[in-house]
Amino acid sequence: MRRSLPLAATLVAALLCSPVAADARTVPAAAPAADRWDSPGPHPVAVRPGLVTTLYYPGDIASGGRRHPVIIWGNGTGATPSVYDGLLRHWASHGFIVAAANTPNSNSGREMRAGIDRLTALNGADGPFRGRVDLDRVGATGHSQGGAGAINASGDDRVDTTVPIQPGPLASVSSLHGPVLYLAGRNDSIVPPALVRGFYNASGHVPAIYAERAGADHFTPVGDGGGFRGVLTAWFRYHLMDDAQARGLFYGETCGICADSAWSDVRRNARVEPVSTTGR
Rank of each mutant, 00 (worst) to 15 (best):
10 T>Y: 01
269 N>S: 10
204 G>H: 10
249 L>F: 03
186 R>F: 12
11 L>K: 11
220 T>H: 04
16 L>K: 11
81 P>A: 02
148 A>M: 09
250 F>C: 05
149 G>L: 13
71 I>S: 06
134 D>T: 13
180 V>A: 14
27 V>P: 00
233 T>D: 07
173 V>H: 03
56 Y>R: 02
44 P>Y: 00
125 A>H: 05
25 R>E: 10
90 H>S: 06
110 R>A: 08
165 I>P: 04
179 P>V: 12
43 H>V: 02
211 A>K: 11
40 P>C: 02
247 R>H: 15
92 A>T: 02
178 G>T: 03
239 H>F: 15
236 F>D: 09
273 E>W: 11
188 D>H: 11
42 P>E: 11
18 S>P: 05
216 A>F: 05
216 A>T: 11
222 V>A: 14
239 H>G: 01
109 G>M: 01
213 R>A: 13
250 F>N: 09
154 S>C: 04
120 T>C: 00
209 I>G: 07
117 D>L: 00
245 Q>L: 15
190 I>S: 14
219 F>Q: 09
88 L>T: 13
105 N>K: 04
27 V>H: 07
249 L>N: 13
249 L>W: 10
125 A>Q: 13
91 W>D: 00
47 V>L: 06
2 R>H: 11
35 D>W: 00
204 G>M: 09
98 V>S: 01
173 V>Y: 06
174 S>T: 12
31 A>I: 12
279 G>S: 12
263 W>S: 10
69 P>S: 08
45 V>Q: 02
224 D>G: 15
119 L>A: 07
265 D>G: 05
200 Y>V: 04
256 G>P: 08
114 A>M: 06
189 S>A: 11
170 L>E: 10
95 G>C: 01
205 H>A: 02
56 Y>N: 03
10 T>G: 13
55 L>T: 07
267 R>Q: 15
127 G>F: 01
272 V>H: 04
129 F>I: 01
175 S>E: 07
141 T>I: 05
188 D>K: 12
41 G>P: 00
178 G>E: 03
271 R>Y: 11
263 W>P: 08
30 A>R: 07
92 A>S: 09
231 V>E: 10
48 R>W: 00
153 A>Y: 05
63 S>V: 13
252 G>I: 06
11 L>V: 14
44 P>W: 00
146 G>T: 06
82 S>N: 03
82 S>H: 09
98 V>Y: 04
41 G>A: 07
181 L>F: 14
197 R>G: 07
187 N>T: 12
178 G>Q: 04
11 L>I: 15
12 V>A: 13
159 V>G: 07
135 L>S: 05
179 P>G: 05
155 G>D: 01
268 R>L: 11
253 E>R: 14
129 F>K: 05
221 P>T: 14
